[in-house]
Design a binder for these strands. Sequence first.
DNA 1: CTAGGACCTGGAGTGGACTCCAAGGCAAAC
DNA 2: GTTTGCCTTGGAGTCCACTCCAGGTCCTAG
Lengths: 126, 126
Amino acid sequence: MVANLNPRALYTIGECARRSGFTMDTLRYYERVGLIDDVVRTTTGQRRFTDGHLEWLGILKCLRDTGMPIEQMCGFAELVRSGEHTMTERVRLLEAHREAVDERIADFEAKRRYLLGKIDYYRSVA
Amino acid sequence: MVANLNPRALYTIGECARRSGFTMDTLRYYERVGLIDDVVRTTTGQRRFTDGHLEWLGILKCLRDTGMPIEQMCGFAELVRSGEHTMTERVRLLEAHREAVDERIADFEAKRRYLLGKIDYYRSVA
DNA sequence: CTAGGACCTGGAGTGGACTCCAAGGCAAAC
DNA sequence: GTTTGCCTTGGAGTCCACTCCAGGTCCTAG
């Protein structure tokens, strides 16, 4: 999932953006709203991200791209912050989301069929 | 797709909303931006929708729910307005959209698998 | 040493798609 | 005939998720 994994490496925000697929602005925004934690800073204030962050960003990307709203992602982030004892709760949340994704896929497939029908119809009268 | 089809029937905007799944506000908005045409009015100015509109709204719903932006839907509506000679162009547009939908579905399925992996992982450490 | 690029902050602005509102007209039920 | 509810308009407001900006600092290649 993450290319060139190099433990202990530190990435600038630009590099992290390039590797995660988020923009720098989005990364700063996510940090601000509490979706990204423990970003260390250089003595001059620049952010440094780790491979752990990249892994976490992979999860966020998955959740975001499958339609989870920021607020819910914040809830998940909060669970992760809270420690090991939230594991079952995390599973519950992800399971619920997976179900939502399944429904979404089913809906898309139904709409895809409808679309094919329309296309056939247009072809038949063209 | 449309229940209780009753040719020549006329529906108030409220009834049309109920049957189409759009809100009244959205219907008015769609009319305003040119997504819905030929809405007749009573002498007192109230809109009356037909089964033809409901059918068209079914298409719009499909396109919207599969992620087509309003502007593109307007383009499609324009083709439909322009008459029979735009059939191949309509097919082209819908085909392109179907491909986008296919990609979207594939992406969702990949993310779904990723999610399942995460859930398994969380379960394993819980 | 200096030019150019990467990074910082707080806050304002954007885009898309609605969604709501006030102030009023009209319709159907009782 | 009046109350209750549905409908009208133009325009303003909302929400989400960024995205951009100004004005400044910092880093690095030559």
